[in-house]
Amino acid sequence: MTSGLIFACAGVVLFAMGTAGVVLLDHLLRRILAFNLMGSGAFLVLIGLAQRDGMPDPVPQAMVLTGIVVAVAATALALALARRLFALTGGYGLPQSEAKDGND
């Protein structure tokens, strides 16, 4: 098992953790962070697989560079929408999870 494959497997674990986080967490900020973790895992898989044969492949590296910047844009967009939701409703949860919070 080369170091590239180890990176790819770590990326898979990060992706699975992020997926579980998106499903389980109620607070929108945590959900955005979990979504970012999924993205980081996917990038790690691409970068790890790109160098599993020793020689790094420039094409996945360029794709990941593009992907990181798009992920930043998506995160900023999500944060702006979350803030707007907070300004409108006073909470950082989606409507059904807020109803559950109210019962607690």
């Binding site: 494959l5 497997c9 898979v12 674990v13 992706f15 699975a16 997926t19 579980a20 697989l49």
Partner: peptide, 12 residues
Amino acid sequence: AALFAVALIAAL
């Protein structure tokens, strides 16, 4: 999620 990760690693 753990099963998903194991399946993906096996595929990798």
